[in-house]
Structures are given as structure tokens and as C-alpha cells.
Design a protein around this nucleic acid. Sequence first.
DNA 1: CAAGGTTACTTCAAAATTTGAAGTAAGTTG
DNA 2: CAACTTACTTCAAATTTTGAAGTAACCTTG
Lengths: 190, 190
Amino acid sequence: MIQTLLPSEVEVETSIGDVEVADFPEITAKKQAHRHPAHTVVVTHFELARMIERVNRRFASLLRTEMAKLGIDDVGPAQAMVLLAIGDVELSVGELLDRGHYVGSNISYYLKQLADGGYIDRVASQRDKRSARIRVTEKGEQLCANLRDAGGAYNRILARDADDLRNLEIAFQTLHRLELVWGNAARYGI
Amino acid sequence: MIQTLLPSEVEVETSIGDVEVADFPEITAKKQAHRHPAHTVVVTHFELARMIERVNRRFASLLRTEMAKLGIDDVGPAQAMVLLAIGDVELSVGELLDRGHYVGSNISYYLKQLADGGYIDRVASQRDKRSARIRVTEKGEQLCANLRDAGGAYNRILARDADDLRNLEIAFQTLHRLELVWGNAARYGI
DNA sequence: CAAGGTTACTTCAAAATTTGAAGTAAGTTG
DNA sequence: CAACTTACTTCAAATTTTGAAGTAACCTTG
């Protein structure tokens, strides 16, 4: 729609514009996946990137709202994402960097705020005293649990049947591929 | 992997971790889509969100690099995304807001910088003098074209065969669904 | 047609996030 | 042990995002 025609593009079915969330038949895309859709528009690299940016924005504001509901105001949504990334295992800052492709100084900054808020504990590793071991505290686990509870409703809406599950799975894997392609390109040059 | 077991989650095949970009058989997922994968882990709402966040970060840094290569330093990657969102049609600020789910003041800020850099023109609409009509200038179109050229390489890597195309299509549509679900939840409350 | 409301945007200041350069301290290696 | 690397932290600056408060044009309704 936006881009002009170029080689190596991705075709995507149109008319998924103003559909209600309650029902979304086009997305389910039962048998259509194996033939070319009738009306196709072109989605490039950038269309995907823009979509991802938009969805990310949406999610961030959703998370902000959830956290406001929970009365959390000492850390922001970005810090909550880091907390969720840590999960229930003890790990080092380096491992955390890999998990989110954060920049080091960025994580340091977030961890400081999470530690100040009492959401995580930092313990210097016995083995390697440079390496800080990070663990979610009781309070942090409580926040995660509350957020997961709130998220359950979305999981139920998003994953209603086997088709939904398959599509979410494919979306997840495809995003992972994008992550690798874009990441490698950044490191080694296309 | 991170979250504890909860109802209404999404199953996703594991072991797509350290695969080369050059070949990515798991992603192609030819016939597996219709049966349950052998090894499954759980992906929640938040796993997806974290993936999206990571991929978005990756893309932003890629775009930053591309722009540095092109010698663009008067606008940042966020402004470039807005430029790409405008595309080759003339539209109003309001329409642009819809395209990217931006916040009004945010777009205003970006448009100001894009206008200062000579990438867009703003003309007050004849019909409604409140409404500013936005159009990409020659210079702006040049930047878009350069970015699209650079993006062509990624399109070729990402969309190699019919399976890739189908998966990218499904990913795009699924992201769109996420966008709607999360967006509606934000507006009307789950 | 004028008062009051709405729409379409802009401006501004403050906050949040992200970057990048420089630092520190602990390991590692020759 | 000196030099290098690793693992992280700190700090200042840039960028991005928010939210409140404008402004001007449009649209009612009396």
C-alpha cells in the first residue's frame, strides 16, 4: 500500500482492516494458507517493522495501564519487562543481556531501579566476583504473578482454538527469525 | 520457560535457539503446523510481547545503522519510520496518528523535525484549515527510496520460498490481531 | 450570528528510555 | 606481575514519549 513495487516482497491478504476483535475470521485463515489469496497487497520488510513497532507501542501502553491499576509507580513498564525476562531463575547480568538484546548500561540502569524498589536481589557470585547474580524477590515475584494474572485474559482471547495456537506459534517463530536476521545483519553486515 | 504453567497459553516448538540465519529449517515448519510439536514449551502473552520488544529493538538499531551509512544525521530512526508511514500519499496528521498509533504530540514533534530537515511539506487544507496536509518532499522520497533499497536485501533473505511467504503473512496478520486485541483492551478495558 | 462545545493539531516542560564513553574491579594470560 | 580481557557500573547526553495546556478553526444550538 505504501511502498512501490519492488522485487522480493511478501504478499498479504487485504481487508483485515476494521474487523471486531470478538471475531476475526481472516486471521484464522484456515485453508487459505496453501493457496494465493485473491486480493493481495505487498508487505515489505518495513511494513513488518512498522507493524512490530505499533504492536510494541500498544503493548507498552497496556502494561502501563495494568501497572497503574496495580498501583505500581516506583518502576515503569520497561523495568517490568526486565523483571519478566529474569523469570524465576537466578542469572547474571550478561545472561539477561542476551535474553532481551539490551545494551549493558541500559540493564544496569533498570536493575538499579528494580533493586531500589526491592523487586530483585543482587548477589556477587562466589565463583566470579565481577558477575552479579540477579534474583527476583518475593515482592518482584508478586508483581510478576499479578501481571501474569492480568495477562491470562489476553491469552484466552488470543488463543481460542487450534488455529489460533498455530498462528501464534508461527508468528513467534517468524519473529524469532526476524530477530536473528536483523541481529546478524547488525553485527556482521548483511 | 520463564513463566510458570497457567491456563490458556500458547505452545511453541523449542530448539530454534542457535541456528544460522543462512538456513532455518524449523521456521519453515512444513507439515508440522498441523500436529502438536514433539517438544513444546509455553509461550504466554508476555513471551510474545518480549519477543516483539526484542525484535523492535533489533530493527531500530539496524535502521540507525542504515541511516548512518546514508549519512543522515538530522533526523533519527523514529522520524524515518514516520516518513515511511506517510508513504507516497498526502494525508493529514490525524490519518498518520491512526497509521502508527502514535500520540498526537509525539507526531507533531517528529513532523516538525522532518519539516525542518526538508523531508516533508505541510500545507493547510483548503477544506479545513485546522487540518495540516502532509506530503513527502523530493528529499524525503529519496531517503525512503534509499532505505527501501537497503531493505531489499532483507526481503530476499526473509522471503526465500512459498513457506517463508506464508509464515511472514501469518506473522503479519497475527501481529495485526494482537494490535487490535491490545488496542481495544486499552480503550475499552479487556 | 454569537456563545459554547468539539476537533485538529501544536507547544512546552517534564519524564522515561536509550545510547555511548569512560570507569572499576576481578579474572586471565603470557 | 604487567597487560589484556571480561563483567559490569556510572555518568552525561541524546532521543523518545508523555501529559497538560494551549490555539485556531469548525460546528452546533439557541
